[in-house]
Design a protein around this nucleic acid. Structure first.
Lengths: 216, 216
DNA sequence: ACCTGAACACCGTTCAAGT
DNA sequence: ACCTGAACACCGTTCAAGT
């Protein structure tokens, strides 16, 4: 049950996504593989529930229900999502190619939509703003997470050197900017991109909505 | 060699990422699995090269070297990246958890950086703008791609109905906006989010740079 | 009735044996 | 010298056999 999901997350955190198999999971729980199938339909289901468990650990900012401007609330929500995913970096590749719809994913989505609607955006606009922000955050988190099984770790370690050693005539900008492209301050860069979107929202909407209008 | 990569991409496009194994790949090429290892070091290498081949198919907008405003050039580049990835949707999960650094990935990155620098942005700023845009595009493409192996197809098919049937008291916004959250016009929505970022860039920089300043 | 060892049909990769 | 069938050590999942 949730003991299974919790053990699966332990293995993923400790040894990586590839280290999780029904056999290693059974061993972690001191049982046999076949026994797992009495509580769980498939490995896929375990992965989906593990991802939703991670989303459930995210601390939704308390300011959501308080009187503060929507911009800092949206920023806090996006930051909380990134931080939550970063605390289990090995599971983030599961975000690829699908939209989480577990209960905790829905809770976060609902809170974010409520916030935007409460800020005064028309509901269809709120949906688009919500999705644009989520796409940015997920794209960012995937890029900063440790490599999936597809790439070896050594690539990222020596990425800067790799960029620097490229032919400068073919790649003048990349070689010149190897430093900025690799040894970046992720927190600052995340905030930079998020601010671009938030600036765009302000400009797009021309909205400076009422502070903390109550939802209902 | 590149016949192997091409065959791998055929299998991925036709039958999905999971359908590619060294055995199916060998069968596609009418040979044995062991033979593949004379040309390739690992399956991982095949996947990396297949992804880079997809990136190589992307038509970089010709306007890059012409005299047009930077905003439409950036938009064209982002759209080209999305379109290229959408033409091989089954391979997009490989974008998770790593940064492509194959020759074609580098070519696109270089072109995008050159464009931004040429538009008048300071190089370190250009890097951040480039990365913010790329993260948004990748986040978007992953969300609109068919599910990876982790999720079943039936989820997305009935996602709208799933949203609608959620308890409306717990999820008022999601249930009310089930339509907008699912039956969206992806092209329009992609442009919407991209425009947010571009608006943010204009506002952030206060830059309306010279048109088509030559790179060198 | 509940549990699970062992099996099935797969993997990626290697290597001894064939030509 | 080059190629590859067969094997190795794994997978996810199932089911007959055990308790």
């Amino acid at each position: 049950m949730e003991r299974i999901v919790s053990a699966a997350l332990d293995i993923i955190d400790r040894d990586g996504l590839d280290a999780l198999s029904m056999r290693t999971l059974a061993a972690e729980l001191d049982t046999g593989t076949a026994t797992l199938y009495r509580y769980v339909n498939s490995k896929e289901e375990v992965l989906v529930e593990a991802l939703d468990a991670v989303l459930g650990e995210i601390q939704l900012p308390e300011t959501y229900s308080q009187a503060s401007d929507w911009r800092s609330q949206v920023a806090a929500g996006a930051t909380a999502l990134r931080d939550g995913l970063r605390s289990h970096p090995n599971i983030t590749p599961l975000l690829a190619g699908s939209v989480p719809i577990g209960p905790n994913a829905l809770k976060g989505r609902e809170a974010n939509l409520d916030l935007l609607i409460n800020a005064g955006f028309a509901p269809p606009t709120a949906v688009r703003l919500h999705l644009a922000i989520v796409h940015y955050v997920i794209g960012f988190v995937l890029a900063e997470s440790p490599e999936s099984a597809v790439y070896g770790t050594q690539y990222k370690r020596t990425l800067k050197r790799y960029y620097q050693r490229l032919p400068a005539d073919t790649y003048p900008s990349i070689t010149a900017l190897a430093d900025q492209l690799t040894t970046r301050d992720n927190d600052q860069e995340f905030a930079f991109g998020l601010d671009l979107i938030l600036d765009g929202i302000e400009r797009h909407a021309g909205v400076k909505p009422a502070r903390g209008r109550k939802t209902r």
